[in-house]
């Protein structure tokens, strides 16, 4: 699937990730994130979202191999970069925050030390400057008494505070792209909302490109301009959030949307939809649609290569069915 965006900050084409030669975790994933845009990657757990993000950062654990036509960031080819060059980019132009705020900070060092080392590494800043910058950012992410927090250790902070620290730390060098991998999943519901509001605010104020990974369509609706729905290592549908939500075309996207109640639309007492089965493990050499075993509209031809179809505008999807199949089936 080619991204049709003009001059994206990040563009990934045909990314494939193989785990130990036994599992195809990502199968030809393509994605483009534009400057100043929030792009959500959504899907069930185990469908290859995080591993795609880690591939972009080149942070995959040992034994996991990525290949792609290209992974381009601001025109530079990340695939061609050495680990040393890549490490100069990470934390500087591209930052990432993770799902587990409780364990993502090093328990042995203070917040200030962990934040300032980013600036020391990438800007050759001295400790004082770096600490000032860290305090400024802590205030910016809504942490009171930042000066005191700098001297504290992670275990002295709540989960929500730690995630704020992670966000502030990611912003130390004014990155162009922030990848947030399920940043609110491990948090309380009220804290989730605060963190999302913060991310949204920062994205707008700083003009960040934000690649937000989530399994929650509610988050997508709130945060994103564009959405890529992932299933079994593929982007099965992508487009502007409005288009995709208004006319979900891939059976998986429809299934996902049917699972959330919509006030005014869902009738009381009417059962919510669900998608039977689980995300399959895809072995090497697998062909055809990864969703066919769980799909209500599956046909024999789904075992062959699936076409990428255009649904108008930037909206495209990966299925044998024509764009208007939903209306046809509803009729």
């Amino acid at each position: 699937m080619t991204a049709s965006l003009q001059d994206p900050v990040l563009s990934v084409a045909n990314l494939r990730v193989s785990i130990g030669g036994r599992t195809e975790a990502v199968r030809g994933m393509s994605l483009a994130v534009a400057r100043g845009e929030t792009h959500c990657m959504v899907g069930e757990s185990g469908c290859g979202k995080s591993i795609s993000a880690l591939s972009v950062m080149n942070l995959l654990p040992r034994g996991i191999i990525r290949t792609a036509d290209h992974i381009r960031f601001q025109g530079q080819d990340l695939l061609a970069m050495s680990e040393r060059q890549m490490s100069r980019l990470r934390g500087d132009k591209i930052s990432m925050i993770f799902q587990e705020p409780m364990t993502s900070l090093n328990p042995a060092y203070t917040i200030g030390s962990q934040m300032s080392e980013v600036l020391e590494r990438h800007r050759r800043a001295i400790r004082r400057q770096a600490m000032d910058r860290a305090a400024e950012l802590l205030a910016r992410v809504g942490i009171t008494a930042p000066g005191m927090r700098l001297g504290q250790y992670p275990h002295q902070l709540s989960g929500g505070l730690r995630q704020r620290v992670m966000i502030a730390m990611a912003l130390m060098c004014d990155p162009e792209l922030l990848i947030a991998d399920e940043p609110t999943t491990a948090l309380d519901v009220t804290v989730q909302a605060q963190i999302l509001r913060l991310l949204q605010k920062l994205q707008q104020e700083l003009g960040l490109a934000l690649l937000l990974i989530t399994h929650d369509l509610g988050v997508v609706a709130r945060m994103a301009q564009r959405v890529s729905v992932m299933y079994a290592g593929e982007v099965v549908e992508t487009g502007a959030v409005g288009d995709v939500f208004a006319a979900p075309t891939h059976p998986y996207t429809r299934g996902l949307l049917d699972c959330i109640p919509v006030p005014g639309k869902t009738q009381t007492g009417e059962p919510l939809g669900n998608i039977p089965g689980m995300v399959p493990r895809i072995p090497p050499g697998f062909a055809g649609c990864g969703f066919r075993d769980r799909c209500m509209s599956a046909a024999p031809e789904c075992a062959q290569a699936v076409p990428l179809r255009d649904a108008g505008g930037d909206h495209s999807y990966l299925c044998r069915l024509p764009p208007d199949w939903t209306r046809a089936s509803a009729a």
Binding site: I19, I51, L54, G63, I64, Q99, E100
Partner: peptide, 15 residues
């Protein structure tokens, strides 16, 4: 897929 998922999916430490 969380990092835990990745670790589980790994073929185990090479032994």
């Amino acid at each position: 897929m969380s990092s835990v998922g990745i670790a589980q999916a790994l073929p185990g430490r090479r032994r």
